[in-house]
Each structure stands twice: as structure tokens, then as C-alpha cells.
Write a protein that binds this DNA or RNA. Structure first.
Lengths: 195, 195
DNA sequence: CTCTTTCCGTAACAAGTGTTACCGTAACGC
DNA sequence: GCGTTACGGTAACACTTGTTACGGAAAGAG
């Protein structure tokens, strides 16, 4: 035996580098050499931690989902009423800050990559459905009198709204700034409370 | 003088080929050779019609915007009440059919490309703002009692909803099928009518 | 028909891509 | 301490990319 490495730590660092490159250079600039340079290593090291480029992308996508998941949990747990919890989770998923907007760019990059890679598309479907389910449960907590179908419809609507806000804010942060996103979400929630 | 060509016709055909490749192969598969093969010519011909790849992308993006614009005009003109016009334009912009879903994939491809290309980003901003303005005017027609700010907020919300529905339907057509999109839009319109 | 001019396909180019094989090197067991 | 072994950097691979230069061919003018 000789020196052992922290494989998981390396993979996580490389995934972080992937996000950074994706946010700064976009999907066309996402090359192994760019990721390696960003992580402070060489392409050889990258392909020792991952079998190929697709494996790197898949891992980066998975870790991104995990991170957003724990952030959503944290947002929901600090809220008082069910409506507050729903609002907190939605606002946390929106891109109301420069950092969040950068994350939205990463999101779009993965989305575009998923259109050409079935493995990423499958991940995107599964992760998105789990988010819809999460929102659906929060909606059901806000409106216990609603049926399952009504909650599901409201959930897909809310998720689509947040997804659209992120996509638009990523390319036009002036039109879709923090107040615009907040008021859009607030309006959708108001309808949920009144309907 | 010798044989004259139809430059504009060629450019339009190449833009159509660009859409097709973008929808089928995604952004990574969008190469000059793929576009040329799709259009039934060679890369030399492509670069005789356009200065470089970016010019091809910009032209394809512009023509796409024009096409969606005339389609929106047609949808609005065939409607009776202002609310019907708004509903028709929104539904036409959504991806409620396989063909529309393919167009949504093209849309996402251009969006991801815009994150790495300032020229495309500028186009995306301008075209999206013109769409927001269009929706804003329709909202104002539905609710003449609302102020300019309220109409603008409602417009950005509706546009974000449609954009999000398209993004989600492109990668998960089962969850975000035609009925889901329709009910989501209908719910948002109901809020507009009641609020 | 011939000449001229425009057009477009061919083929090459340099640069950059993902990927692989190899070898130096650093660290652990003894 | 040394020897062994896993690790990771170097450099090459084959391939594809966008782009360019050149030559042949098609079509109008005379």
C-alpha cells in the first residue's frame, strides 16, 4: 500500500469546479481542461476521479440536487405557518441574489446538456419531480381542504413559475430582479390563499 | 454577370436546419457540418451565406423571434374578448404539442448559448422584453382599471410561467403535458380576472 | 458558341476536444 | 531506512471543430 487519496473529496471539488466553469463560460466552455484548471489540477487527475466527462457531469448534477435539497429543508424548517414554509422554499429556489443567479446559469447549462444526454435527462426528470412533490406537500399543508389533483396542479404551476423566473433572470437580471420575482411569487401565493 | 443566387432564401433554409439540429442533437451537436448536412449542402456553402458560426446563430435566433411574433399576432387577432386574446397568445407560446415541445428545445438551446455569447444574450433580452410588453398590453386590455406597474408585474409573472412550463415540458413531457400547462395558465388567468 | 463572372463544393489548415498510456514520484508498511 | 504501490502529472493519441484558400462548374452577356 501507498498513499491513499480522498476520492469523494476530489469528486466534490471537481463538481464545484464544474459549476464554476458552467456559470462563467457556459456550456460550450465546459471542457475537461477548463474544469481541471479551475480545480487546480490536470485533466489526467480529473479522469482518474471520473471515468469520463459524462460521469463528471452526472456527479456534478447529483451534488447540485443534494445541495438544493438541504437548502430547501432548512428554509422549510425555519418557517412558522405552512404558508410561510411554502413561501420560504419558493423564494429560496428563486434567483433573488447574484449568487443564486449564477446558480440559475448552472441550472440552465445542465438543462441544455440534458437535452442531448439521456442520463442527465433522467436525472433532471427525477429531481424535478421530487421538487414538485415537495411543493405539493407544502401546498397540501396550506390547503388541507383541497384534493390531491388540485394540490398537484398548484404545485406544477408554482414550480414552473420559479423555473421560468430563474431562466429569465439568468439572461435579463434587470427586468427580472429581486422585487419582480418576489411579487410574482407573492401573487401566486395570494391566489393559493384565497381560491 | 453570371448566375445569381437567392441569398435570403439560403439563409432562411440554413436557419431552419439550425433549428432542426438544435432540437434533435442539442447544443453540443450544433456544428456547422451537422447544419450543412441537414440543409443538404456543404460547410463551404454555409460559410458563404454567413460570415461565421455566430452570424448563423444570430440569424436563426432572429428568424425564430419573427416567426413566434407573427404566430402571436395571429392568435391575438382571432380572439373575441381581451381575455380570450391573452389566453390565446399564452397558449400559443406554451408547448402543448410535440411540435411546440421541439420548439421549446430549440429555445433552451438558444438560451444556453446566450449565456456564453453576449450578442445572443442581447437578442434574448430584447426579444423577451418585447414579449413581456405584448403580454402587458393584453393584460391592460383585460384590466383597464389596473395601473401600469400592476400590469407589468402580471405580465412578467405570466411570461415566467409560460417560459417555465416550456423548460419543464421540454425535458419531462409526461409531468408537464398539455392539460397541466393549460390548467396552469387558466389558473393564472383566473387570478387576473378576479383580483 | 464563347467568354466572363459569380457561385459553391473540395480539401486542407490550425486549434482544441475527450481520452489513453506511460512514467516519475510521493507516501505508507515493514 | 528501504522497497513497494498507488497516485497523478506529461504528453501523446485520434478525432472533431471552425475557418480558409483554391479550383471547377454553371449561367448569363455578347
Amino acid at each position: 500500500m501507498a498513499r491513499r487519496r480522498d476520492l469523494h473529496g476530489q469528486q466534490e471539488r471537481l463538481s464545484a469546479a464544474t459549476w464554476a466553469v458552467l456559470a462563467e463560460q457556459g456550456l460550450p466552455g465546459l471542457t475537461l481542461r477548463a474544469v481541471a484548471e479551475r480545480a487546480g489540477c490536470t485533466t489526467g487527475m480529473v479522469l482518474h476521479a471520473f471515468a469520463d466527462k459524462r460521469a463528471l457531469l452526472v456527479h456534478a448534477r447529483e451534488v447540485l440536487h443534494d445541495r438544493t435539497g438541504v437548502r430547501a429543508d432548512a428554509a422549510a424548517s425555519t418557517a412558522g405557518t405552512p404558508l410561510d414554509a411554502l413561501r420560504a422554499v419558493l423564494l429560496q429556489a428563486a434567483s433573488t441574489s447574484a449568487e443564486k443567479r449564477e446558480e440559475a446559469r448552472v441550472w440552465i447549462g445542465f438543462l441544455a446538456a440534458a437535452l442531448a444526454d439521456p442520463a442527465l435527462a433522467e436525472l433532471h426528470q427525477r429531481y424535478n419531480r421530487s421538487f414538485v412533490d415537495r411543493i405539493g406537500r407544502l401546498v397540501a399543508a396550506v390547503r388541507p381542504d383541497w384534493g390531491r389533483a388540485a394540490c398537484a396542479t398548484a404545485a406544477t404551476t408554482l414550480v414552473a413559475l420559479v423555473e421560468g423566473l430563474n431562466a429569465l433572470a439568468a439572461v435579463d437580471p434587470d427586468t427580472y430582479g429581486e422585487p419582480a420575482q418576489r411579487s410574482a411569487i407573492e401573487a401566486a401565493l395570494a391566489r393559493l390563499n384565497a381560491g
